[in-house]
């Protein structure tokens, strides 16, 4: 006789939900870091010059 343990569908759903939430939080953290830190500058330096032709 085989002893089989089954995981209730409700527990599976809860686990999936937890994993999804953790993954979402991780993504949001990464976005925040890149926009506040190492991203390209949104300002440029302009040298305003004159010319006669």
């Amino acid at each position: 006789m085989t002893n089989s343990k089954t995981i209730a569908p409700r527990a599976l759903l809860a686990l999936a939900g937890l994993l999804f939430t953790m993954s979402l939080t991780s993504c949001q953290k990464k976005e925040k870091t890149s926009s506040a830190g190492g991203g390209a500058s949104s300002q440029s330096v302009l040298q305003v010059k004159g010319a006669a032709r």
């Binding site: 500058s41 440029s44 302009l46 040298q47 305003v48 004159g50 006669a52």
Partner: peptide, 17 residues
């Protein structure tokens, strides 16, 4: 007064992209 024929720099500053 600066001579435009000599490519003067009037000034410099930053500008949002």
């Amino acid at each position: 007064y600066v001579d435009a024929a000599h490519s003067p720099t009037f000034g410099a500053g930053s500008l949002p992209q």
